[in-house]
Every structure is written in structure tokens, then in C-alpha cells.
């Protein structure tokens, strides 16, 4: 609001006001222009954002031969639609496929495990940071903010070296713990902001009724924060499911342990697997996120504005 005082609205000063009639036509012209521009922007952005995903789906049901002979056609002929790419990408390597079923299981376990562990640790942490007075609270808040802004590439070197030395680098469990360390800061941030909006009088009332601190947290604050926790859970799932760098550093040597992201990235570098088969893999990688997202668009976009990935 202070901004408003600093910026007087110029047209209201009589000297700056152009003659009424010319002004009116300028207004009409601009309004018309922006009406057109607005729709151009909307349609343009819609095409740009949706087309790659449309292209992904059409390629996944086409045959590689048809793609190479007619790359300009962006719709599949009804006769050529087949889901062979999906069966091929999902089948295990032993059956001549690409083993994506295994990747899905790994990714799913790691992502769900990350969500569970992160929430378990971050909810009490966020509650403490937002509600309780204790020594070092502000410093801890600042630490979490700094960690949240710190990019993962800087941790890549020491974590890689550390877990290699321990001989634990190939362990899926280690990847999970690293993911938790990456998501905990942003989780605490999102949840802290939410806990702060719960009126303290509610908790005081509960305390008067004889509930202890932990009891208040569990019975009053947690249920109220339900939606925020849900959107945080989705957000953490998204980060863990989409993650690439640490999966690459930790699990690349053993194909049986690949996540979907890692598998797709590794296989797309090889010439033996047809692009259409990998497109099916891309659809499989993207689909869970899109389903989650459209199932809870409001929740997730709230979550996204409260935090962000790196």
C-alpha cells in the first residue's frame, strides 16, 4: 500500500491529461489491441505448454518406422495405433523389454518413503519453529532457508565421496535419506507458514482444557493443518519422483536399482532402444505426476506457491 503513495496516477493531474477526444480513441484502440493480444498470448502459451505432452503421447502409440518416414505428421493414423511400445518398455530385461516395471517400483518406494519420513520429521520441526520459544529458534529458521536455497549440485561431490567411502553408494535406502535431507527444509518452510496462520487462542483454549503441548499439537494444530500437510506431501512426492541428479550419482551402476527418471535418461542415450518405446517410458514417468496434479490442482498450486523445488 505504501507503494501507492509514491506513484501518483499521472492522468489525474490536469496538465498531463490529453484532450478528451484523442484520449478516448487511444483508450478504445488500446483496449481492442489488448483484447486481441490477450487471446494471442493465451493460445500461444497453451500450444507451447501442451504440445510437447501431446507429441509425447502420439509418438508412444506410433511405430518408429512410421515416425521416420513421416515425421511432420503429428497425429497417429487410426490403423497404426498400437500399445506395443508400452508392453515392450514395461517388460523385464529377461523378457526382452526395458524393465520399467522394476523402475516404477523403485521410484514409487523411494518417493513414498521420502514423503513419509519427511513429514514425520518436518511436522514436529515446523510446529516447534512456528509455535515454541526456544534458544536458537531464529538461527534454525535461517539455516533451513539457506539449505532450501542451496542447490543439490553443491552437495553432489561430498555426498558422492562420503557414501562411496562407506561402500553404501549403491543402496536405495541411502538415496531415500538424501532425498529426505533435500526436502526437509522446504517442508518446514511451507508448514511453518501454515502453522503461523492458526490462531494461538485456539491452542490456549486447549491448554486451559488441560491438554499438554504435544496433545495440543496432535489434536488441535495437526487436524487444522491437514490440507497444508496434504499439499506438502504431494509436493515432496513430486520432488522425489522427478529427481535425477542423485539417482544418477548413486544408482547408475546397477540397472536393477534404477529409478524411472534415471532409466529413461540412461536409455535415451543408447541407440538400440527405439524412440517410440522410450516415449512410452516418458508417458509412464509423467503420468503419475499429471494424475496427482489434476486430481489436486488447487492443493498443489497452493503448495507450489508456498515453496518450490530447486
Amino acid at each position: 500500500m505504501t507503494v501507492m503513495k509514491e506513484t501518483p496516477i499521472r492522468p489525474s493531474s490536469p496538465a498531463a491529461r490529453p484532450p478528451r477526444k484523442r484520449h478516448f480513441s487511444r483508450d478504445v484502440a488500446e483496449t481492442k489491441l489488448f483484447r486481441i493480444l490477450r487471446w494471442l498470448v493465451i493460445v500461444g502459451l497453451l500450444v507451447v505448454t501442451v504440445f510437447p505432452f501431446y507429441y509425447m503421447i502420439t509418438l508412444s502409440v506410433r511405430d518408429i518406422g512410421s515416425l521416420i518416414s513421416d515425421p511432420a505428421r503429428i497425429w497417429p493414423n487410426l490403423a497404426e495405433i498400437s500399445f506395443d511400445a508400452y508392453t515392450s518398455v514395461l517388460a523385464s530385461v529377461a523378457d526382452g523389454g526395458q524393465g520399467f516395471t522394476g523402475f516404477i517400483i523403485t521410484s514409487g518406494l523411494v518417493a513414498l518413503g521420502t514423503v513419509a519420513l519427511t513429514l514425520l520429521i518436518a511436522i514436529p520441526g515446523a510446529y516447534a519453529v512456528s509455535r515454541l520459544q526456544f534458544f536458537g529458534r531464529r538461527q534454525i529458521s535461517a539455516l533451513f532457508l539457506a539449505v532450501y536455497l542451496f542447490p543439490s549440485i553443491l552437495l553432489a561431490v561430498p555426498l558422492f565421496v562420503f557414501f562411496t567411502r562407506l561402500g553404501l553408494r549403491g543402496a536405495v535406502g541411502v538415496l531415500l535419506v538424501v532425498y529426505v535431507s533435500q526436502t526437509i527444509a522446504v517442508s518446514i518452510f511451507m508448514l511453518r507458514n501454515y502453522f503461523q496462520t492458526i490462531p494461538e487462542s485456539l491452542e490456549e483454549a486447549a491448554a486451559l482444557d488441560g491438554l499438554g503441548r504435544i496433545g495440543t499439537m496432535l489434536r488441535i494444530s495437526l487436524p487444522l493443518a491437514g490440507p497444508a500437510i496434504m499439499s506438502n506431501a504431494l509436493f515432496v512426492f513430486m520432488i522425489a519422483w522427478n529427481e535425477f541428479l542423485f539417482a544418477l550419482l548413486f544408482l547408475v551402476e546397477d540397472r536393477d536399482k534404477w529409478t524411472v527418471s534415471l532409466g529413461l535418461a540412461q536409455l535415451s542415450g543408447s541407440l538400440e532402444v527405439p524412440t517410440t518405446v522410450l516415449m512410452a517410458g516418458s508417458v509412464i514417468l509423467t503420468l503419475p505426476i499429471i494424475i496427482l496434479f489434476f486430481g489436486s490442482e488447487r492443493l498443489l498450486s497452493e503448495g507450489l506457491t508456498a515453496g518450490s523445488d530447486k
Binding site: 501442451v50 505432452f53 513430486m238 516418458s282 489434476f294 498443489l300
Partner: peptide, 22 residues
């Protein structure tokens, strides 16, 4: 339309990069 605008941001980077490459 708003939901569609968010697609590039929420979708996995590996899949998005692969589609662009293709």
C-alpha cells in the same frame, strides 16, 4: 488453462528434456 500452464513445471525434467530432444 491455468492448470495446463503448470504442466512444464510439474512434469519430470527427464521426460520433458527427452521430448524436446526428440
Amino acid at each position: 488453462v491455468r492448470a495446463a500452464m503448470l504442466l512444464p513445471y510439474v512434469s519430470p525434467v527427464v521426460a520433458a528434456a527427452f521430448v524436446w530432444k526428440t
